[in-house]
């Protein structure tokens, strides 16, 4: 971060929220990311899709600061990311703790970063109330349905109050119906979250339904095969999926994925 306060302000104002620039990463001798470029504007919702094993989760953990690239740069607000803790990250499995009730699971992140237990629980309780989940507050996670578990894990991530949310296939493990429900829920709460969002998914429809821009990763080693702005009107309804425009965008994404020629 620049020392000069004016320059600092300019950097924050005009730099993209999140940047990955020529990012390379190999693991165990396997090249996974091979020069990935990504730029996410403040407040933007970007979906990342790609074949299974392409390196989507790897890219996300780089953006989360959990790993650092072999070459290239990851920046937040124009400043290189030095470690985890700057953004909110939701891993691919929900990882709810069986010894904590729902409200205690939601407050986990706050407690982990030094908030007092009482304060963290109160905030978690208020968040549950705001999203209409207060009746589950005292329940153990094992008693929750898959959809409910995802919601709780999402709230746990959102409650950190960070300006970037990285979501790794948050609905990947859900059945089609519940997934629809949760997608609608996410559309509904997006404004309230007031964050820049990067969402990994393997579902083309989900990407188009939720995102302002869809980034397609190629097969491993991954590069950006396509970065497609989605200018469908917002807030979107499920019905958008039957429009001509949607079909066209979907066609381009599938083509980039190498599924249709």
């Amino acid at each position: 971060m620049p020392e000069d306060p004016i320059r600092r302000k300019l950097v924050i104002q005009y730099a993209p929220k999140l940047t990955a620039c020529g990012v390379h990463l190999a693991k165990g001798g396997v090249r996974i990311l091979d020069g990935v470029d990504l730029e996410v504007e403040s407040g933007q919702f970007v979906a990342v899709i790609g074949p299974s094993g392409a390196g989507k989760s790897t890219l996300l953990s780089l953006l989360a600061g959990l790993e650092s690239p072999d070459a290239g740069l990851v920046e937040k607000d124009g400043v290189p990311l030095v470690g985890p803790g700057a953004v909110a990250y939701m891993p691919q499995s929900d990882l709810l703790l069986p010894w904590r009730s729902v409200v205690a699971n939601v407050s986990l992140g706050l407690e982990a970063t030094g908030a007092s237990k009482r304060e963290a629980r109160e905030k978690a309780m208020r968040a549950l109330e705001r999203f209409g989940l207060e009746e589950f507050a005292r329940v153990s996670p094992w008693a929750l349905s898959g959809g409910m578990r995802s919601r709780v894990a999402l709230l746990r991530t959102a409650l950190l109050g960070r300006d970037v949310l990285l979501l790794d296939e948050p609905f990947g493990a859900l059945d089609a119906l519940t997934r629809r429900e949760l997608q609608e829920w996410l559309i509904g709460v997006r404004d309230e979250l007031a964050a820049t969002i990067v969402l990994v998914t393997h579902d083309v429809d989900e990407a188009l339904l939720l995102a302002d821009r869809v980034v397609v990763l190629s097969r491993r080693p991954a590069r950006v095969a396509l970065s497609l702005p989605v200018e469908l009107e917002r807030p979107r309804k499920m019905a958008v999926e039957t429009t001509e425009e949607f079909a066209q965008l979907k066609g381009r994404l599938l083509e980039a994925l190498g599924i249709v020629h």
Partner: peptide, 22 residues
């Protein structure tokens, strides 16, 4: 679960917190 430790790291939790909470 190593993923749980990663989750705690992503919060920015200290090793001590991770030990006692997870």
């Amino acid at each position: 679960d190593p993923d749980l430790i990663r989750l705690m790291r992503s919060f920015g939790a200290s090793r001590r917190k991770t030990f006692f909470m997870v």
